[in-house]
């Protein structure tokens, strides 16, 4: 049966740990893997613009010796002519060995997986999920913090449409001793389905706050997110909420000395550029780790490396 990655919860904790181990191994010894996917093709179907995720997938496949084809926005695909996701994927899965797809509509990768002959990786679907960003986030925490348990994690900004937040919460609740602090304006609070599935169902403790400063000192990890203009139907509401939280060196004064600052990027102005020099800021290293977890994932989905469940 063809294996897909639509939601981070499609992977067991054992599989995630296996992927992170493999990603670290590739990170430390990239030359050992440079021909691992020779003569294989990754299709990047990006119905929504992306820089980091698409380039990271392409870099991952090229670093494995494979090839890449695809499109980088819906306007340059048959979607513009009204072709369905199902038809697009049914065709492309005959041209490639693995597909990475980003789509603005939530649940689109599930439709793709149902019509694909090859593995489909969800590279972000609307405000829903972004599992490879989560693998990237987990690799960052594991490498920078040395563990994935016993952490107080602050999630700040757009928790409503922030798909990276939804996927990360789902993954972290499965590790022991986690506690979450949800920091957002009322309008961008965590959606009910995530609260129900990730927090209520697991009983993991969490608190909510509107103020970042009030909770800063408690956090081992601060995950900042951008308020995304493209998720709003109403421009006025976006303008009102976009600067809800801006992380500055002054606000970091009360933070723990070893707190990690993560951000899925792109950043607009929610983290001041002055913070970049702070050793706790690891969002650029985080983006680099993304290439290695995607290499590990491609190897696993193509059956080149076995990941134990």
């Amino acid at each position: 049966m063809t294996r897909h990655l639509l939601n981070i919860l499609d992977l067991s904790v054992g599989e995630i740990d296996g992927l992170l181990r493999l990603a670290s191994e590739i990170y430390d010894r990239p030359a050992d893997y440079r021909d691992a996917c020779r003569h294989q093709i990754l299709a990047t179907l990006f119905f929504e613009p992306s820089t980091r995720t698409r380039l990271s997938f392409e870099s991952a496949m090229l670093s494995l010796g494979g090839n890449v084809l695809g499109f980088s926005d819906a306007a340059s695909s048959s979607a513009r002519k009204g072709e369905s996701v199902a038809d697009t994927v049914a065709v492309v899965s005959g041209y490639a060995d693995v597909i990475a797809m980003r789509h603005p509509k939530e649940g689109a990768p599930m439709v793709a997986a149902a019509h694909s002959l090859v593995p489909v990786i969800n590279a972000g679907d609307g405000g829903h999920y972004h599992p490879t960003q989560t693998l990237t986030d987990l690799m960052t925490v594991r490498r920078e913090k040395g563990r994935l348990s016993g952490l107080t994690v602050g999630l700040c900004g757009d928790l409503k449409f922030g798909r990276t937040v939804h996927s990360l919460l789902g993954a972290l609740t499965r590790y022991g001793g986690m506690r979450f602090v949800l920091i957002s304006p009322d309008e961008l609070r965590l959606p009910e389905f995530v609260r129900r599935n990730c927090l209520d169902a697991t009983g993991v403790p969490y608190t909510e706050s509107r103020s970042l400063e009030e909770v800063m000192g408690e956090l081992d990890l601060l995950y900042m997110t951008r308020v995304q203009r493209e998720r709003f139907f109403n421009e006025e509401e976006y303008l009102r909420l976009k600067d809800s939280y801006v992380l500055t060196p002054e606000k970091l004064r009360s933070a723990k000395p070893d707190m990690l600052i993560l951000h899925p990027l792109p950043r607009v102005n929610e983290i001041s550029t002055e913070v970049d020099a702070d050793p706790r800021a690891c969002y650029f290293r985080q983006a680099h780790y993304g290439r290695y977890v995607r290499m590990a994932l491609i190897l696993a989905l193509l059956g080149k490396e076995k990941i134990e469940p």
């Binding site: 649940g107 439709v111 405000g127 129900r196």
Partner: peptide
């Protein structure tokens, strides 16, 4: 924002939640 609003020929499908009382869209939840 659900794919069911645009994808041709896709039937609406809801699944019973773990709480046994509510239904969620199979695609966007």
């Amino acid at each position: 924002r659900c794919i069911t609003t645009t994808e041709q020929g896709l039937r609406q499908e809801f699944v019973l939640s773990a709480d046994g009382r509510t239904y969620c869209c199979k695609y966007c939840e």
